[in-house]
Amino acid sequence: GIDPFTGEAIAKFNFNGDTQVEMSFRKGERITLLRQVDENWYEGRIPGTSRQGIFPITYVDVIKRPL
């Protein structure tokens, strides 16, 4: 089901994660935001896939912030 505490964002740019914990994505992908890790990073996942990880806040347009 849908978790009411998650947020939502759209990727503004392609992001290629450097490490296992970073999640790569392509511009235009819809991302579920799980939490804000710190002032620069979100943790999120791509709905319908097993992809999950952290990524820079500046790479996405936030539609709804996670609670």
Rank of each mutant, 00 (worst) to 15 (best):
G7K: 08
K64M: 04
D3G: 09
V21F: 14
E43R: 05
V21P: 11
I63R: 05
L67D: 15
I57R: 08
A9M: 03
F25H: 02
Q52R: 11
E8H: 09
F13L: 12
R45L: 12
V60A: 04
V60H: 00
N40M: 13
W41L: 07
I54Q: 06
L34C: 09
I54F: 11
D61L: 14
G48Q: 06
S50V: 09
E8L: 14
K12A: 07
K64V: 06
F15N: 02
T6L: 07
E43G: 03
I31Y: 00
F55Q: 00
Y42R: 01
G17P: 06
A11I: 02
V62D: 02
T32D: 08
E29K: 00
E29N: 02
S24P: 08
G53S: 01
D38M: 07
G17S: 10
E39W: 08
V37G: 02
R35N: 07
S24V: 03
T58F: 14
K64T: 06
R30D: 03
R35C: 12
G44N: 00
R65Y: 15
G53Y: 01
G17A: 14
E8T: 10
D38N: 12
S50A: 12
P56E: 03
I46F: 04
P66M: 07
D38P: 02
G7W: 15
P4R: 11
D18E: 14
G53T: 01
T19H: 12
G7L: 07
D38A: 09
D18F: 11
Y59H: 12
L33N: 04
N14L: 04
K64R: 07
G44W: 02
P4Y: 14
L34V: 10
L67F: 05
G1D: 14
T19I: 08
G1E: 14
V62L: 05
R45V: 10
F13Y: 12
K12R: 12
S50Y: 09
R45C: 14
G28I: 01
T19Q: 10
T49P: 02
T6D: 10
Q20K: 13
Y59V: 09
T58K: 10
D3N: 10
A11T: 03
D61I: 15
D18V: 14
R51I: 06
I2A: 14
I10A: 03
G48H: 09
E43F: 13
G7V: 07
G44L: 01
F15W: 08
L34E: 04
I63S: 06
G48W: 06
R35S: 08
N16V: 15
I57N: 07
V62F: 06
W41T: 10
S24T: 08
R51C: 04
E8V: 12
S50D: 14
A9G: 12
T58Q: 14
R65D: 15
E39A: 11
T58I: 14
N40S: 11
A11N: 00
G53P: 01
E29C: 03
G7Y: 13
T32Q: 11
I63N: 04
N14K: 05
D18K: 11
R30Y: 13
G7D: 10
K27R: 10
G7P: 06
D18G: 11
R30N: 07
Y59E: 04
E8M: 12
T32Y: 07
S50F: 10
T58H: 12
P56I: 03
I46P: 00
Y42S: 03
D3P: 10
L33F: 04
G28E: 03
F13Q: 13
V37Q: 04
F5V: 09
R30T: 11
D61Y: 15
R45P: 01
A11K: 00
F13G: 07
P4T: 12
Q20G: 11
L67Q: 15
I10R: 06
T49I: 02
Q36K: 08
N14I: 04
D3A: 11
I46D: 00
L33V: 09
Q36V: 08
E39P: 10
D18P: 08
I63H: 05
V60R: 00
P56Q: 03
A9W: 04
E43W: 13
R45K: 12
W41N: 08
Q36G: 03
K27M: 09
G53N: 00
P56V: 02
